[in-house]
Simulated assay, not measured.
Amino acid sequence: MPGARAAVGAESGRVRRYVPDGPFDLRLVLGPLRRGPGDPTFRAMPDGSVWRASLTPAGPGTLRVSVYGGEVRGEAWGPGASWLLEQLPELLGAADDPSVFAPRHRVVAHAWHRRPGLRLTRTGLVLESLIPSVLEQKVTTDEAYRAWRLLVRKFGEPAPGPGPAAGGRLWVMPSPRTWALVPSWEWHRAGVDNKRASTILRAVRVARRLEEAVRMSPEDAQARLEVVPGIGPWTSAEVVQRSHGAADAVTVGDLHLPGIVGWALAGDRDADDSLMLELLEPYAGERHRAARLILLSGHTPPRLAPRMPRGDIGRF
């Protein structure tokens, strides 16, 4: 493939170089793929590089992405290395067209001006976004991140390539078959209730069909995902935002997003989904990008109520 070369040593991988078209912020682009600071599949390094471990259609792979000047360098290891490098431009937003976006509110315009390097990633992988999104249903992010971290480290496999160079070993998430064999008590120890565990088990049984959705439009992909009991509009939107780079997939049913959007665009901290969608209507086709910019703006309402109560079923 263009820009790639064969491995030349135990710690050397295949390499591809890529020059983004326009402003580019690596951590801003790949940030949505990180599931908490302890995500075992993702690591952001002090030198500015980002490491990811993925289960690709060709097998497990590790990808290191770094930026030098205006050029991106991707280096990959493992059976999935070629697939990861083939996907590299889309992962970094090459399929995204931010030029069609027109800010229509000062908060959005200010965030857009301050974040010119924002591109929407497209991973080309469904399950790697679906499973952590299911874990995030109706719980705090801390609980979900803990569950993802524990399950991946216990049932995943060490990522190929130079782990120490990534600041410690990365892990590839379990295969669908391995997810299907996770004992009930291990879900419990990770703090995952039966409803979320059952949703994941139903999803991995039809993993091939779900991965096929990456070749569909985001709307059709959401419809296919939502056929699985336990996967609704919130979860399907969270998935296609990452797997498809879906610029218009709004996360509805979220505990905080309507209030944040309502506060930023209308000064209404009590906005619900219907008002949020009404406020985002001028951004039709780009509503997810607009919502993302609002979140990046930091223009959020002051907190008045306690946070969602945290539960840990693994202790009982």
Rank of each mutant, 00 (worst) to 15 (best):
R122W: 00
G3L: 03
W185V: 13
W179T: 14
R315L: 12
F316A: 15
P98F: 02
R177D: 13
A223M: 00
F101W: 03
P302K: 08
R169I: 02
A109H: 03
F316R: 13
S66N: 06
E128T: 14
R115P: 05
H244R: 07
E212T: 09
P306I: 00
R122M: 01
T251H: 08
Y145A: 06
N194M: 11
R17F: 05
L130A: 13
E75C: 11
V100T: 14
R196Q: 12
P57Q: 02
M308L: 14
I260G: 09
H288I: 06
A144R: 01
R73A: 12
R64T: 13
R122Q: 08
W51I: 13
V240D: 07
D97M: 04
P302R: 09
V50R: 08
P103C: 02
R189C: 09
P233K: 12
A109P: 05
R303D: 04
A207H: 10
W171N: 05
G245K: 04
L295K: 14
P89H: 04
G93C: 05
G267Y: 00
R292I: 03
V206G: 12
L118R: 15
Q241E: 08
V192S: 15
R292E: 12
T62I: 02
G161T: 08
R146S: 04
V204W: 00
D270L: 11
P174V: 09
H105A: 14
L151I: 11
L279N: 10
E286H: 10
A290E: 02
W112V: 09
G117D: 07
G191R: 03
D268L: 00
D254R: 08
L150N: 05
M216F: 10
G48N: 05
E86A: 15
L33R: 08
N194T: 13
I131W: 06
P306Y: 00
D268T: 06
D47C: 08
V240L: 06
L55R: 15
R208I: 07
P89L: 03
I313D: 02
A144I: 01
L63M: 07
R287Q: 08
P132T: 08
G93M: 01
F24Y: 04
W234G: 13
G314N: 01
L135S: 10
L293T: 07
A53N: 10
M276S: 13
A53T: 11
R310T: 08
R16N: 03
L63H: 11
F101E: 06
S133A: 15
G298S: 08
V72T: 12
L210E: 07
F101I: 04
D21F: 01
S49I: 04
V252N: 11
R202S: 10
A190P: 07
P132E: 01
G298M: 02
V8W: 02
